[in-house]
Design a protein around this nucleic acid. Sequence first.
DNA 1: TACTTAAATGCGACTTAATCGCAACTGTAG
DNA 2: CTACAGTTGCGATTAAGTCGCATTTAAGTA
Lengths: 124, 124
Amino acid sequence: MQIENIIEQKNLKLTSARRELLEILLKENKPICFEDIKDKLTMNKATFYRNILKFQSNDMINSFESNDKKRYYELQNSPHSHFICNICNTIECLKKIDNIELEGYKVMDVVFKGICKNCLEQSR
Amino acid sequence: MQIENIIEQKNLKLTSARRELLEILLKENKPICFEDIKDKLTMNKATFYRNILKFQSNDMINSFESNDKKRYYELQNSPHSHFICNICNTIECLKKIDNIELEGYKVMDVVFKGICKNCLEQSR
DNA sequence: TACTTAAATGCGACTTAATCGCAACTGTAG
DNA sequence: CTACAGTTGCGATTAAGTCGCATTTAAGTA
Ligand SMILES: [Mn+2]
Ligand SMILES: [Mn+2]
Ligand SMILES: [Zn+2]
Ligand SMILES: [Zn+2]
């Protein structure tokens, strides 16, 4: 199983809450926020946030806030950036943009905001 | 005065709350969050947020969330992107990165996260 | 298998950003 | 000066996120 491996690699206890959370994140396969999944969650919300924190400090997930002012979490399968549409609020995962470098900085994450393909087309 | 012009261009009422808020944003000249300025604010916080909203819908300010989970607001003088350091949490305004284009998208804002110059140097 | 213990959990209280409805107020056009 | 739409203050409300503490549990060891 993937989950067992993920947890073991990070030297974390495999608890039922963690299994549940990782299963959700795996299944979704796109950024999700607390509101999206709170009804599915068996665990207490404090446990949810503590595990999110733990996973983040172990580089297992990343998070960012979207235009709806909600924080989105996703598994860090492969590093990639995100595009958030200012019109429809859709979050898209972009393939890694490898030409983005800033002199003197180490870029680890990029979030683009603007107008997505769909919304651009509809505005014509 | 700048403020009068800004407001007039957007067909908004120039109220004392709006003058105060714009003065603060002008003076700061960098992204600030509610907590940073709430003590200076004369207006009620509902008024603060309503004006922030109004200014945003009029493209006068933009906002983004930083690593400290606080939302930062700044005047949209000239379009530019931001770099947020994952170590020291500093927010830097970057000169417009003009080579950032995504096929089919209209990019209006970019937020980079990673390690800033200072923190990179200190880690050596 | 049973024991041990550090780590994880549930619960309830708490903090604080952000929003909302409503009555009172104010900026601006005429 | 007046009228009125738009704005404000206030108080209540919602919801994300955090915290302390008592209880439970995963996982290593005997
Ligand atoms: Mn993604
Ligand atoms: Mn800036
Ligand atoms: Zn869109
Ligand atoms: Zn830094």
